[in-house]
């Protein structure tokens, strides 16, 4: 591993100042499950590594602010997957977090890291899109709120300015009842990178939100307001027509060795309809429990 300066700020202001001073030669280190691989294989050669795990503003865990759940940037996947709060309000996010890597990876990988890498295959992205998350960013010029749907730009590129970092992710507790499910496609059942990652959320007003990734340059959110997908009695043809529209943007790479484009496109349909079905079932359970 090449050498670099390792800096460990203890306040947000310090972190922002360091980032400002050293960008673009600086990389932020949170869980490190991607960065350290890059440092070792030489694909990442920053002069400065800023470890943000001890910045208190970033690691305040998972907080219920009444109507909003705020997840600190350095919250690890394992905590996300097992958080009672997340499981109650955003079960598909917990599901996605539990699907990331192995137990060892989930003990290091952070939510902010997962989204900041802006991998099209990021598993937490689809549920965050479905639940309408907002990214809280801080920089030299202050804080701002970025809707998650505007956060992913291209593979490896997010909407943050050079001197900005993610402080937390905010999730609005849904005002209506929602059933949601996260599903993914991999080459084996054990931990693997997703060749399709998808989340469906069906609410009691009949709106279906479908977010999916790994089939284009960025994860995307599509909304079916027609009520067709949410209607278990809708005809197969009607549902297929809606899926046609929702998946029209998918453009899986022909160069991937993980799955061919035809398969990925077909799996979008399969996973989409399975996730919607599970989401509808869960919505039913919500009603019963509610």
């Amino acid at each position: 591993m090449q050498t670099f300066a390792y800096l460990r700020p203890s306040t947000l202001a310090e972190a922002v100042a360091l980032l400002e001073a050293h960008a673009p030669d600086a990389r932020l280190l949170a869980g490190g499950t991607d960065l350290i691989i890059g440092l070792r294989d030489g694909s990442e050669r920053p002069r400065v590594v800023i470890d943000v795990k001890r910045v208190p503003e970033l690691c305040c865990g998972i907080r219920d602010d009444g109507g909003t759940v705020t997840i600190g940037a350095t919250t690890i996947m394992a905590d996300l997957a097992t958080s009672a709060l997340v499981r109650r309000h955003f079960p598909a996010l917990a599901e996605a977090a539990a699907a990331v890597g192995s137990a060892q990876i989930r003990n290091r990988a952070t939510l902010a890291g997962n989204i900041c890498n802006a991998s099209p295959a990021a598993d937490t992205a689809p549920p965050l899109l479905v639940y309408g998350a907002v990214v809280l960013a801080a920089g030299q010029h202050g804080a701002r709120r970025i809707p998650i749907s505007e956060f992913f730009v291209n593979p490896g590129v997010n909407a943050l300015a050079r001197d900005e970092l993610v402080v937390a992710i905010e999730l609005p507790v849904p005002a209506v009842r929602v059933g949601a499910a996260h599903v993914r496609r991999t080459r084996r059942r054990g931990h693997d990178l997703a060749s399709v990652t998808l989340c469906a959320g069906v609410d009691e007003t009949g709106v279906t939100r479908l977010a999916y990734g790994s089939v284009g340059p960025r994860p995307v959110l599509k909304i079916d307001e027609s009520g067709v997908l949410a209607d278990p009695a809708a005809s197969g043809a009607a549902r297929a027509a809606v899926f046609d529209k929702l998946f029209a943007e998918a453009s899986p790479s022909p160069r991937s060795m993980r799955a061919g484009p035809a398969y990925r496109l077909a799996m979008l349909r399969v996973l989409g309809s399975r996730a919607v079905q599970t989401a509808i079932e869960r919505l039913g359970e919500e009603r019963t429990n509610g």
Binding site: R187, R188, R189, G190, H191, M257, R258
Partner: peptide
Amino acid sequence: DYRIPTSMD
């Protein structure tokens, strides 16, 4: 990207 069976496979 070279996958071998894990305990889940």
